[in-house]
Amino acid sequence: MLRLKAVAAVGNSPADETGGDDRGSLHESGNRKSAIRSLRQKWIGSNHADWICPARLPRLSLTIPVNECNGDFSTVEGGWALVDRSKMLYSQTNHMRAGRFVRAVLFGAVKVAILAGVVYLVCMAALKASEATLPSAKELCDRVRPGMTVEQIETATRTFEGWQVLRYDGVMVISAHSDYDKSPVCRVTIDPSTHRASSMSIGPIQMGDWPTL
């Protein structure tokens, strides 16, 4: 990454105008430290404070403005600044590291958020698909036969989601929906003398079908 940036900076630099071979030397340097050392030698020289255009320094940090030094060397208005070049390079390197780290963390967080959204949607889609395959009240009632005991009815009508209630009046209410929504339920009347199913019916949910209703 650094090498590419440094090469790009060299491309904009006066070295290109003079036909310098910085690009080649950067490629040969191979690692970051030697790249910085090489650039320092070529573009800064000794550690003097001097009038220098920040944009003509190797662009190692995003904090350095680009294309601000189009004036000549004698003007300040063109974006020239008095800098200690050695400190600037050191600062640039630190900024680069911190910037890289912050960018990587932010980018990773955004990626995780997007992936989490996708995973959430997949889970919701799977849930909706499983709800769609739940039996209707009619299908539940069809599983019940007259003469079945409460336990047999329970076993026959048990679904992935749903509820079963034996009301005080001996009516068993069965639904394959987890929520107490407006979808119809299956009602099985239990004969109090035999404790077996006597009749089945389908209808909307009513008060008393569930303790809280």
Binding site: Y120, F160, E161, G162, W163, V165, L166, S178, P211
Partner: peptide
């Protein structure tokens, strides 16, 4: 026990 209910707790 006089009622039983099961539901997926996501979300």
């Amino acid at each position: 026990i006089w009622s039983e209910r099961v539901y997926v707790h996501f979300p």
